[in-house]
Simulated scan of single mutants.
Amino acid sequence: MTGIPRAPLWLGLAGLIPFIWGALTGLVDPLANWGATTLGGRFVGPYIQLFYGTVILSFMSGVLWGFATKTSGAKATAGYILAVLPALWAFFMTSGGPVGSGLNLMFGFAGLLVLDAAFWHWRLAPRWWLKLRTLLTVVVLACLAVGVFL
């Protein structure tokens, strides 16, 4: 991905590992068995995706909050309000079973991308931000879809 600094790109890609691992262990039974035996049941299939996805949505609220500090007045107020939405979504919408929680996480990450686009459009995020966030979101949604739809 041209134009994205290496550190954010590599760290963002590394952050996909729990989502990819969750999808793989949801699709490959021997891998799921090995993971559950070695790492514990919480670290395979949709469970690792749900735990980690909740953490990441909360983390991204903090990132957006940081972007909101770059402005003032009504735009800052709107930014702060929008910034807390991913964390609130994760808190309130991931308490059901794995399918419902996974679907709600999918909606949360799709909504987060809309917020990323808004902060980018307001020039509060770096120029490369939306490219990176789009790439990461597509992979996250595909991985979560394994737990939800397969």
Rank of each mutant, 00 (worst) to 15 (best):
M1C: 11
M1Y: 12
G3K: 07
P5R: 10
R6A: 13
P8T: 05
L11M: 14
G12H: 08
G12W: 07
L13A: 12
G15F: 05
I17R: 11
I20W: 05
I20M: 07
W21C: 07
G22F: 07
G22P: 04
A23H: 06
L27I: 11
V28I: 15
D29L: 15
D29C: 06
D29Q: 14
P30F: 04
A32S: 14
N33H: 14
W34V: 10
W34N: 09
T37L: 14
T37D: 14
T37I: 11
L39N: 01
F43R: 10
F43C: 07
F43L: 15
P46I: 15
P46G: 15
P46E: 13
Y47A: 15
Y47W: 15
I48W: 01
I48R: 04
Q49N: 09
L50G: 04
F51V: 13
F51T: 14
F51S: 13
F51C: 09
G53C: 04
T54L: 09
T54E: 11
L57D: 00
F59A: 09
F59R: 09
M60A: 10
L64N: 06
L64D: 02
W65N: 01
F67I: 03
A68G: 05
A68H: 02
A68M: 03
A68K: 05
T69K: 14
T71P: 07
A74N: 12
K75F: 08
K75I: 13
A76F: 10
T77E: 10
A78H: 10
G79N: 02
Y80Q: 08
Y80C: 02
I81S: 11
I81L: 15
L82G: 08
A83C: 05
A83K: 05
A83M: 00
P86E: 01
A87E: 01
L88Q: 00
A90M: 06
A90G: 07
F91A: 13
F91T: 14
F92N: 05
F92V: 14
F92P: 06
T94I: 06
S95K: 15
G96V: 09
G96D: 13
G97I: 01
V99W: 07
G100H: 12
L103V: 11
L105K: 00
L105D: 07
M106D: 00
M106Q: 11
M106E: 01
F107K: 11
F107G: 11
F107T: 10
G108Y: 00
G108V: 00
F109W: 03
G111W: 04
L113K: 06
V114G: 11
D116M: 04
D116L: 07
D116V: 06
F119Q: 08
W120S: 13
W122R: 01
R123S: 12
R123T: 12
R127I: 12
R127Q: 15
W128P: 07
W128M: 09
W129E: 04
L130Y: 06
L132A: 02
L132W: 04
R133P: 00
T134P: 05
L136V: 00
L136P: 02
V139E: 06
L141F: 01
C143K: 03
L144N: 02
V146H: 00
G147F: 03
G147C: 02
G147I: 01
V148L: 06
L150E: 10
